[in-house]
Computed example of a mutant assay.
Amino acid sequence: MYKRIWGIGLVLFMLACQSQHQEGIAVSGRDILVEGKKYWIKGICYHPVPQGSVQRSFDSLDMDLKLMTEAGINTIRVYEPIDDLAVLDAIHEAGIMIIIGFGYDQEGKYDIASGTFMNYVETYKDHEAILMWELGNEYNYHPNWFEGDIGNWYRVLNNAADAIHKLDNTRPVTTAHGELPNDQALIACPSIDVWGMNVYRWDDPETVFEQWKAVSDKPMYLSEAGGDSYMTISKDGYDKGVNQKAQADANAKILETVFNNQDICAGVTLFSFTDGWWKAGNPLTQDPGGWAPNSSGVPYDGTPNEEYWGIVDIERNKKLAFEVVKRIYN
Rank of each mutant, 00 (worst) to 15 (best):
L12I: 14
S19K: 13
Q20R: 14
V27C: 08
S28G: 11
G29V: 11
G29Y: 12
D31F: 05
V34T: 08
K42V: 00
Q51T: 07
G52A: 06
V54A: 11
V54Q: 14
F58Y: 15
D59I: 08
E70F: 00
A71P: 01
I73D: 01
I76A: 00
D84G: 09
I91D: 01
I100P: 02
E107V: 05
G108P: 05
F117Y: 15
D126Y: 05
L135G: 00
N137A: 08
H142P: 02
P143I: 06
G148S: 07
A160V: 05
L167H: 13
L167T: 15
N169A: 15
T170K: 15
T175I: 04
H177M: 06
G178A: 07
E179K: 11
A185S: 09
I192E: 01
D193M: 03
V199W: 01
P219F: 09
L222H: 04
L222P: 03
G227I: 03
M231H: 03
V242F: 11
V242S: 10
K245S: 11
Q247H: 07
V258F: 06
G276V: 07
W277I: 03
W278H: 14
G281F: 08
P288A: 13
A292L: 08
D301R: 05
N305Y: 09
K318L: 00
L320V: 00
F322T: 05
Y329W: 08
